[in-house]
Simulated assay, not measured.
Amino acid sequence: MDVLISVFLGLHIIGIASLLGGFLTQMKAMGAGTARFVPAMLHGALTMLVTGVLLVGFREMDGGTVDNIKIGVKLAVLFVVLALVYVKRDEERVDKALFGAVGGLTMANVFIAVLWH
């Protein structure tokens, strides 16, 4: 079970990298007002959702404990990010504040995962 958890944790990190990487590559465009949500951002958010849910299930099946409040907060933040990216994915330009919010919420999710014990 440990190997399975490690594999899905790696996939979860790849999802985060895709979402955050897509945001970071658009930072210059955000300054110019031409930023858009690239497909990698949507795919990264979906990867995070699926692998995160599976990680919680695997951890509980393995007899480990899960902080349900932390997971709930992370899930709520991810749903907001996913909804924003999904709804605005086809637009040529996304408002700076909205685009920045997605990046900020993504980074907040990373810090919640790392710092909340």
Rank of each mutant, 00 (worst) to 15 (best):
V56H: 00
F8N: 08
A113T: 08
T47S: 05
M27F: 15
G10W: 15
M61Y: 15
W116A: 01
S18T: 10
G63C: 09
N68T: 14
G100E: 01
H117C: 14
V102W: 11
R93F: 10
P39D: 14
A76P: 02
G21Y: 04
N109C: 15
I13H: 04
G22D: 05
G64Y: 00
D95T: 14
T47M: 14
L9C: 07
L11M: 13
V38P: 08
G10Y: 10
L11G: 03
G100F: 11
V56L: 05
L4R: 08
A83S: 12
I16T: 11
G52Y: 06
G33D: 06
V81E: 00
V77N: 06
A97N: 13
K96H: 08
A101G: 09
A101P: 07
G57K: 00
E91M: 13
S18F: 09
G100D: 01
R36Y: 05
H117Q: 12
M1C: 07
A32F: 10
R36P: 07
F99R: 12
L98A: 05
I71T: 11
L20R: 00
N109K: 13
L9D: 15
V53L: 11
G21E: 05
K70P: 02
L82D: 08
V87W: 01
V38N: 04
V50H: 06
V77E: 06
A29V: 11
L84M: 12
V94R: 07
V3Q: 07
L115Q: 04
I112K: 06
I13L: 14
K70F: 01
G100V: 04
G64F: 00
N68P: 09
V73C: 06
G22V: 09
V77I: 11
T65S: 13
F79K: 01
L4W: 10
Y86V: 05
I69N: 00
F58Q: 08
L82R: 00
G15I: 04
M41Y: 07
M48P: 05
I16K: 08
S6N: 13
D62N: 09
Q26K: 09
F111I: 12
A83R: 02
L98Q: 10
E92P: 08
D62G: 08
L19Q: 03
E60N: 12
G57F: 13
K70L: 00
G33Q: 06
R59P: 09
M107T: 12
V87C: 05
G21F: 03
A40S: 13
L115E: 03
V85I: 14
G63Y: 09
I69W: 00
R59D: 13
S18N: 08
N109G: 08
K28R: 10
A108P: 02
T47N: 07
D62W: 06
I71S: 01
F23G: 02
L82T: 11
V73D: 02
G72M: 02
V80Q: 02
F99A: 03
A29R: 05
V94W: 07
I16A: 06
G64E: 03
Y86S: 15
Y86H: 15
T65G: 06
G44F: 02
